[in-house]
């Protein structure tokens, strides 16, 4: 280091430069490296899903019952028919965006807000809803019931 030559520079001044430069360099490098190291630590949740989400485990639902799960940023409805078939649909009513529910007495999907009815395929069959509910694809992967948006829709 050229600073070893003290003939012209006062010692206190030399120390100041050393502290500023050395301390600053070390501190700044730490402030760059620390976030990167933290960044490399994988977070506890592996991902945010996207167009595919695990709605529940096999066996969580009894036949002729349903559950609401989060799909992207909207609620969706997973229902297990009395015949043991899984169906997944958007749970947002096409009328005024209330959350719909499965009525196991009617075997239909019902919106409580204005008495809208959809059949199990999401078709609007009675009441105000102007359009059918969006239908998602359900796959079984091991023990997971996986719901995904239909391709090309």
């Amino acid at each position: 280091m050229p600073t070893n030559d003290t003939s012209r520079v006062k010692p206190e001044r030399r120390r100041l430069v050393e502290i500023l430069l050395g301390g600053g360099l070390i501190a700044s490098v730490i402030s760059f490296v620390y976030p990167i190291l933290r960044y490399l630590v994988p977070p506890p949740v592996a991902d945010l899903g996207g167009d595919e989400v695990v709605a529940c485990k096999k066996g969580d639902l009894k036949p002729n019952s349903s559950k609401i799960f989060r799909f992207g940023n909207r609620p969706a409805l997973l229902l297990l028919t009395a015949e043991g078939e899984y169906r997944a649909l958007s749970a947002t009513c096409t009328h005024l965006s209330c959350t719909v529910q499965y009525r196991n007495d009617l075997h239909q999907i019902w919106c409580a807000c204005h008495n809208g009815l959809y059949d199990m395929n999401g078709r609007n069959v009675a009441g105000p809803p102007p359009r059918p509910l969006e239908v998602f694809q359900v796959n079984l992967r091991g023990d997971d019931v996986v719901v995904r948006r239909k391709q090309g829709a």
Binding site: P2, T3, V17, L20, L21, G24, S28, S31
Partner: peptide, 27 residues
């Protein structure tokens, strides 16, 4: 706060470098 710490250390380096360059060229 993190930004403050980083900026402070960057500032220290800048001042240090400036002084160092000045001294080096003087010499």
């Amino acid at each position: 706060m993190g930004l403050g710490v980083a900026l402070l250390s960057i500032f220290m380096v800048l001042v240090g470098l400036r002084l160092y360059i000045g001294k080096m060229e003087q010499k």
